[in-house]
C-alpha cells in the first residue's frame, strides 16, 4: 500500500511542482509574487473543458489549445497589470496580483456559473501492474509529462540564449541590460512559460480529480506556493523538489494520519520550514559582495 500512496503523492506533487515552477520563475525574474498564478490553472482547465466537452474535440487538441490560451493570458496579465507597476512598491504589485486573481475567478463565474463541471479524462493511459502494485494510468501520465517538462525546462534555462538571459535578469537586471538583454521581453517570456506550465498542471489535475469550478485553482495555487517557498523561492530545482515533497507529505498524511488534518500538516510544515531555514531547501542566501 505504501508504494501506491507514495506514487500518487509523487503524482500530486508533480502537479504542484509544475505550478510552483511558475511561481518561482516569476519571483526570480520579476521579483514579485504572482498570486493570480493559481487561477491560471483554473482557466486552463475551463479552456480544456470547453474545447473537449463543448466543442467535442480530441483531448490532445484541448491540451494544446489550453496551453496556448494560458500562455497568451499570462503575457497579457503581465503587460496590462504588472508592467505599469515596474518600480512601484512591492505591496502595490502584490495587491494588484490579488486583484487579478479575483478578476479571473469572477470572469469564470460569469461565464461558466458557480456549479462545478465534471470532466471526462482528456487523455487515457492504461494502468500498469507491477507485482502486486497497480499504477493508475493518470499517475503514469502525470509523472511522465512532468518529468519531460522539467528536463526540457532545465535544458532550456541552462543551454539556450534566452535561458541565459533569464538567469542574468534574475540576478541583476541592470547588468543584464548592459549585456544587451531586453528585460521586458525576458519577463514576458517568463510569464508565458509559467502560465503554459500552469495550463498543463490544470489539465493533469482535472484528469486526476475530474471536476472544475471557478475556485479550483485556489488551493493548488496556495500549495504550489508553499512548495516553491519550501524548495527555496527563486530556485528552479527547488520548486521541483518542493512540489514533490509537499505532494508526498500531503498524501501520506491523508493515508496515515488524517484526511482532515492533511492541509493543516502541509501548512504547519511551511511554518516550521520558515522558522528553521527561511531560504528553503535549495534557496540561496543573498550574499552581497562590495
Amino acid at each position: 500500500m505504501f508504494i501506491s500512496y507514495l506514487l500518487s503523492g509523487i503524482s500530486l506533487g508533480a502537479i504542484y511542482a509544475l505550478i510552483a515552477l511558475g511561481y518561482t520563475m516569476v519571483y526570480g525574474i520579476a521579483k514579485m509574487l504572482n498570486f493570480a498564478h493559481g487561477d491560471v490553472i483554473m482557466v486552463g482547465g475551463y479552456i480544456a473543458f470547453t474545447i473537449s466537452v463543448t466543442l467535442g474535440a480530441d483531448g490532445w487538441i484541448a491540451l494544446l489549445g489550453s496551453i496556448i490560451f494560458c500562455t497568451l493570458l499570462g503575457i497579457t496579465i503581465e503587460r496590462v497589470a504588472y508592467k505599469p507597476l515596474r518600480g512601484a512598491s512591492k505591496l502595490s504589485v502584490l495587491i494588484t496580483a490579488i486583484g487579478v486573481s479575483y478578476l479571473l475567478q469572477n470572469v469564470a463565474l460569469l461565464i461558466f456559473g458557480s456549479a462545478s463541471r465534471n470532466f471526462q479524462a482528456l487523455i487515457v493511459v492504461p494502468s500498469v501492474e507491477i507485482g502486486s502494485v497497480t499504477i493508475p494510468g493518470n499517475t503514469i501520465l502525470t509523472i511522465g509529462v512532468s518529468v519531460v517538462i522539467m528536463i526540457v525546462l532545465t535544458l532550456f534555462i541552462n543551454k539556450s540564449s534566452a535561458g541565459s538571459a533569464m538567469l542574468a535578469v534574475s540576478e541583476d537586471k541592470g547588468a543584464a541590460q548592459l549585456m544587451g538583454v531586453n528585460v521586458n521581453k525576458t519577463i514576458s517570456l517568463t510569464f508565458a512559460i509559467g502560465s503554459g506550465l500552469a495550463a498543463v498542471a490544470g489539465i493533469l489535475m482535472c484528469t486526476q480529480y475530474p471536476n472544475i469550478g471557478p475556485y479550483t485553482g485556489q488551493m493548488p495555487g496556495i500549495k504550489a506556493f508553499i512548495a516553491a517557498v519550501f524548495g527555496g523561492i527563486g530556485s528552479i530545482p527547488g520548486a521541483m523538489l518542493g512540489g514533490i515533497a509537499i505532494g508526498v507529505i500531503e498524501n501520506l498524511s491523508k493515508a496515515y494520519i488524517s484526511t482532515q488534518l492533511s492541509d493543516a500538516i502541509t501548512f504547519a510544515i511551511l511554518i516550521i520550514m520558515l522558522l528553521v531555514k527561511p531560504t528553503g531547501i535549495l534557496g540561496k542566501k543573498l550574499n552581497e559582495k562590495v
Binding site: 541565459s164 538567469l167 540576478e171 541592470g174 548592459l178 549585456m179 559582495k289 562590495v290
Partner: peptide, 25 residues
Amino acid sequence: AQVPEGRRIFSQLSVWKNLMLGAYT
C-alpha cells in the same frame, strides 16, 4: 560596453557563462 561599478558580475553563474553573456547580442 560598460564595466560597472562594483563589477556586477553574475555571481551565481560560471565564469564561462558570464563571458558568454557578454557576447549575448
